[in-house]
Simulated assay, not measured.
Amino acid sequence: MALSNQPGKPEKKHSQEWFEALIIAAIFATVLRIFVVESYRIPTGSMENTLLAGDFLFVNKYVYGPKIPFTDIRLPGVDEVKRGDVIVFKFPKDRSMNYIKRCVAISGDTLEIHDRQLSVNKKPVALPPEGQFLSSVIPAGIGDEMIFPQFSNYNKDNYGPIRVPRKGDVIKLNAQTWPLYADLVADEGHDVSLQGRLVFIDGAPATEYRVQSNYYFAMGDNRDNSLDSRFWGFLPEKDLVGEALIVYWSWNPDLSIFTNPVGKLASIRWQRSGMLIH
């Protein structure tokens, strides 16, 4: 093999190799981020004290099956969502936003809250070890117009019973069930409307509908400061992103690294680094 003695050739080849290595590394990192694990930051206190505002965490996107970008196609996962999993998902009312909550009920479950006590399938569910309440109990019968479904007379402390829809369920459609299922039917790709006391799907009257997807019910561990399923409804399976794994960094989000660098660095919560999320 002849060797070139032209000046600049070895350096050019070396630079090209470094550039190719960087491209390969970027591709690998992108694939890893899309399909395996991604970093997220906790912006609010809805999961306190399990997770704190200012926590940075890794989320396992592979466990439930990662989605192919720009599609609703989900690849096979290694596990199903379980009650108690801390999950990250696209907020169904604004899918540009990621939310993190605890899954408290899965498809087919019936849940109820009575004086703050959550029960699933008539079995009491303990508050997570770091969960909390911040305000007084709202008595049963005092409805909250912000609560899902509208006109239900539920509130955050006394809720249900309500069944979480499961793929294949046949649900009844009428004026009474309209607030409960209208968004679900619409989100599954149908034009749905209530005309008088009749429900119309894609222009035809309908008294029932077969559910096409599995759904979940999510709540924050900070039960009095969480915009969760009690307020916006069922979580569609297609919006799942992954399961929260571990906190790798944490500091006070209210301090600026630019205006108060010393205070910001002093606020690092070293004890939370490496903390597994349960």
Rank of each mutant, 00 (worst) to 15 (best):
A2Y: 11
L3C: 09
Q6L: 15
E11F: 13
K12P: 00
S15I: 13
E17M: 03
E20H: 05
A21P: 00
I23K: 05
I24R: 12
A25S: 14
F35I: 03
V36C: 09
V36G: 01
V36Y: 12
P43W: 11
G45H: 08
E48T: 10
A53M: 10
G54M: 08
D55G: 09
L57C: 12
V59Y: 05
N60H: 09
Y64L: 04
Y64D: 01
P66S: 10
F70M: 03
D72F: 00
R74Y: 02
G84S: 12
D85T: 09
F89T: 01
K93L: 10
D94S: 00
M97P: 00
M97K: 14
R102A: 15
C103G: 08
I106D: 01
G108Q: 04
E112N: 11
I113L: 04
H114N: 13
H114D: 07
D115G: 05
D115A: 08
K123S: 11
A126W: 00
P129K: 14
P129N: 12
Q132F: 05
L134D: 15
S136V: 09
V137L: 13
V137N: 07
I138K: 15
F148D: 01
P149D: 00
Q150R: 13
Q150I: 09
Y154R: 07
N155E: 14
D157W: 05
R163D: 09
P165A: 05
P165M: 06
D169H: 08
D169V: 06
I171H: 06
N174I: 03
N174T: 06
Q176T: 11
L180K: 09
L184V: 09
L184Y: 05
A186H: 09
D187K: 00
V192L: 04
S193V: 10
L194E: 03
L194R: 04
L198C: 02
P205N: 06
Y209Q: 03
R210T: 15
Q212F: 02
Q212G: 08
Q212K: 14
N214G: 04
Y215Q: 01
D221T: 13
N222S: 12
N225T: 10
N225R: 15
F231D: 06
L235W: 02
P236V: 00
E237V: 01
K238R: 12
K238C: 04
E243D: 07
I246F: 04
I246G: 02
S250F: 01
S256Y: 07
F258H: 11
N260W: 05
G263H: 10
A266C: 11
W270C: 06
Q271K: 12
S273T: 10
G274H: 08
M275C: 05
M275G: 01
H278S: 10
